[in-house]
Amino acid sequence: MLRLTFLGTSAAQPTIHRNLSGLAVRRDRELFLVDCGEGTQRQMIRFGTGFDVDAIFFTHFHADHYLGAIGFLRTLSMQGRTTPMDVYGPRPAKRLLDVMLFTGTERLAFDVRIHEVAPGTEVRRDGCVMRAFATEHRIPSVGWALVEDERPGRFHPEKAAALGVPMGPLYGALQRGEAVTLADGRVVRPEEVVEPRRRGRTMAVTGDTRPCAGTIAAARGADLLVHDCTFGDPEQARAEETMHSTAREAARVAREAGVRELVLTHLSTRYDREWQPLVDEARAEWPGPLSVASDGMTIEVPLPHDLARAPSPG
């Protein structure tokens, strides 16, 4: 499973329909948050993501992207969590979060391990890495790419049987990439019965950014790109001034990176409920699967061999 649940899709301030930035990423047994704006924990209850978060990945430390972490971590403490929480973000993660979480307040019931990262930092998780990549905003910032490990190639038991390999441990050895020797002395190599290894999934989340080479490189060939889309064409100058992106610019990044699907998020309040102009502008640059995120929307990212089955926003 690789499922994204959009917890907050508004830029700078909440609206009736949109909370501040937050994204829940469920990959098999692990749950990550990418950013945690104010009100995120209520959104997690509302949309049923669960509170079993293994790590929080911040893109930057503007207030609308991190203030919700303070209350959320205290809720986990009141609920009796004892497992350490790993928190990752660009500078000033260590200085800022140390002050916000531990100065003049009751200590949490679990350890919070704060890791300051830079573009290129890789965080190893179960079956994947979370890779920080360079973005361009007004303060130090990164995007996060989830890159799954390669998967074993498909094993063909009928081919193994035809070569005289008996069912049992030798099948397992071949699937692990080991050559096996049969009772008659013949050697069967894994490439005779196992297809080449298959790539895993890749998704990239920019946070707040101008369109930039760092995003294009990190999202090259990705299954999904979640990109800042604060403004439309009429606000081009404002996008450049505040170091955000327009829908057209985000779509251009998606096209240049060759991604499979694009999701636009972090919308200005002027597009709170009327985002069709953003879709129209993005369509001028991007012909592929495209959606504008809304709070509670979920996307299932399929395995590469299932790509005929498109993700379905909820």
Rank of each mutant, 00 (worst) to 15 (best):
V53L: 04
T269Q: 05
H156M: 10
S245P: 04
T5Q: 08
R201P: 04
P304R: 07
D223K: 02
T59P: 15
I114M: 09
P14Q: 02
R248D: 12
D64L: 04
F61A: 06
E261T: 12
A251Y: 04
C212D: 03
E249A: 14
F102Y: 07
R3P: 04
T209L: 02
T269S: 14
E30T: 10
S141F: 04
A63N: 08
H305V: 14
F6R: 02
E178P: 07
T75P: 01
A24L: 12
F72R: 05
M167V: 13
G68R: 03
A239P: 03
A222T: 10
D28S: 08
H65Q: 12
A254K: 01
A183F: 14
M78K: 11
V34N: 02
L267A: 11
Q79G: 12
D280G: 03
S312C: 12
A239E: 03
P211I: 07
A132C: 02
G120Q: 07
P196M: 12
V279A: 04
E256R: 13
G50A: 12
R252L: 14
G48R: 02
V142G: 00
T206H: 06
R154M: 09
M78L: 14
R131S: 06
W286P: 00
G22W: 04
E261L: 07
A69H: 08
R283Y: 08
I45H: 14
M243E: 13
T9H: 13
F231K: 03
T40A: 09
M44K: 00
R107C: 12
H115E: 06
A109R: 15
M85H: 04
D111V: 08
T298M: 10
L76H: 00
T265K: 05
E136L: 10
L307D: 15
P211A: 13
G164C: 05
V205T: 03
F6T: 01
P287A: 08
P302S: 10
F133D: 03
A11I: 02
F231D: 05
T246F: 00
R198Q: 12
A257P: 04
G214Q: 11
T215V: 15
D184P: 15
E192T: 10
L224H: 05
M203L: 15
I216G: 11
S268V: 02
F32S: 06
E274F: 13
M44D: 01
P211Y: 00
A109D: 14
R248Q: 15
A179C: 05
D35F: 01
Q276I: 13
V193M: 04
G314C: 05
I56N: 07
E300K: 04
G89D: 07
W286H: 05
G120D: 10
D295R: 04
T15G: 06
T59W: 10
L33D: 03
R91H: 10
T75Y: 13
S312N: 09
M243A: 15
